[in-house]
Design a binder for these strands. Sequence first.
DNA 1: TAATAATTGAACAGACTTGTCTGTTTTTAT
DNA 2: ATAAAAACAGACAAGTCTGTTCAATTATTA
Lengths: 192, 192
Amino acid sequence: MSVFILNHTFVHMKKKGTVRERAIRTASDLFYRQGYNLTGVNQIIAEADIAKASLFQHFPTKEDLCVAYLASKNEKWLNDLREAMDMSSSKNEKIFQAFEFLKRNAPKEQFRGCSFLNILSEVPGDNDKILKEVRRNKAALQHILKESILPDKQHKSNAIYILFEGAIIESQVQKDIWPIEEAQQVAQEILN
Amino acid sequence: MSVFILNHTFVHMKKKGTVRERAIRTASDLFYRQGYNLTGVNQIIAEADIAKASLFQHFPTKEDLCVAYLASKNEKWLNDLREAMDMSSSKNEKIFQAFEFLKRNAPKEQFRGCSFLNILSEVPGDNDKILKEVRRNKAALQHILKESILPDKQHKSNAIYILFEGAIIESQVQKDIWPIEEAQQVAQEILN
DNA sequence: TAATAATTGAACAGACTTGTCTGTTTTTAT
DNA sequence: ATAAAAACAGACAAGTCTGTTCAATTATTA
C-alpha cells in the first residue's frame, strides 16, 4: 500500500483490484494515450503501484501484457457498442445507434481513434498474436453489424463495416465527428 | 564511397543521390516497413551509408527526418494516384480508377496500409508538425476525389473519401483487397 | 591552386529499454 | 499458528535510443 502523509497522519491508500487488474487497467490507459512503444514498463508499474517482479510474474513479456490489454478492451468495447445498439428495437435504427455510439465516444477519448488499429500500426506486421487479437475485434464488429441488418440487405453489411471503420479513422485524422456523421448518413441511404 | 573487394580488385560503389536524398529514401523504406519508433537512426545511417554527423547536419532531429519522409511520400503518392486516375476521361471512371490504384498498390506493399495513418498512430497526439503533414495528404486526397465527381454529386465527395480511407485501413487489417473492392462497388452505386 | 564547405569515422554522453535476480515482507490458506 | 504463495523494493544486466563532438578527409567553388 502506498503511504501519503496528510495532516500529520499516515493515510494508507488501499489499491483497487488485483495486481493483474491494475496492470491491465494502467497499461490500457497508457498504451491508448501514449502509444505502445512509447510506454515503458517502468511507467506502468509506477502508475499501477506494482513491483516490477510482480508484473513480469503475471505477464512474462510486455507483448503478453499488450495482448491482455487488447482482449480486455475488446470485451469492454463490444459490450458498450451492443448496449448502445440495444437502445433501439428496429434493425435499421440499431445501425444508426452504432454511429451515434461513435459520435459520443470519439470526443470523449479525444479523437485518439481505434485501440486496435493503433496497435496494429505500432507492431511489426508479422506479430501474429497481436494481429489475431485485432482481427478478433474486427470480426466481432462485422458480426454485430451484420445481425442488425435486415435480411434483404445483408449483402450490404461489409459496406456498412467499411463505412464504420472509415468513420473511426477519419475522425481521428480530422479530430472531428463530421466523418462519422457523413458515414452515418451514407449508411442510412444504403439501408433504405 | 564504400569499397568492396572483388576478384582482387577494389570496386568503388558510387552512392546514388545526395546525402539528403539517400537519407529520405532509406528512412522512407524503413519507417514504412518497420514503423517509425522501431527504426533507429543508427540503422538508417548504416543502410544509407551516411555518417551520423551528416544525417544530423541535414535533419537536426529524427522528427525532422520524419516530416521530410512524409512530405516526400506525399508528393510521390499523390502523383501516382493522379496518374492512375488520368487513365480515364470520364469523371465517374476516374473514381473507379482510384480504387483500382489501391487494389494494385496494397498487395505490392504487402498490405502495410497508409504511411500517414501509420505514423499518426505512432506519435503523440500533440505532435503538430507531423499531424499537419498527415492532414496535408488527406486534404489533397479529398480535393482530388472531389474534382473527379460530377457537379450534381459533389455533395457525395466526403462519402467517397471515407469509403476510400475505410478501404485502405481494412485492407491492412484483412490483408486482402476485398475491402477495396467492396468500397469501390459502393462508391459506384453512390455516384450512379 | 587555394579557400571554403561538406562529409567522414568514431568515441562519447546520458537517458531509456526490457527483463532478471535477491532477499524481505505481506497476504492467504490450512 | 504455521506453512505456502504472492507481492514487495530495488539493484543489476546488457543493450538501445537520440544526439553531440572532434579531428581528419574529401568535394566543391573561386
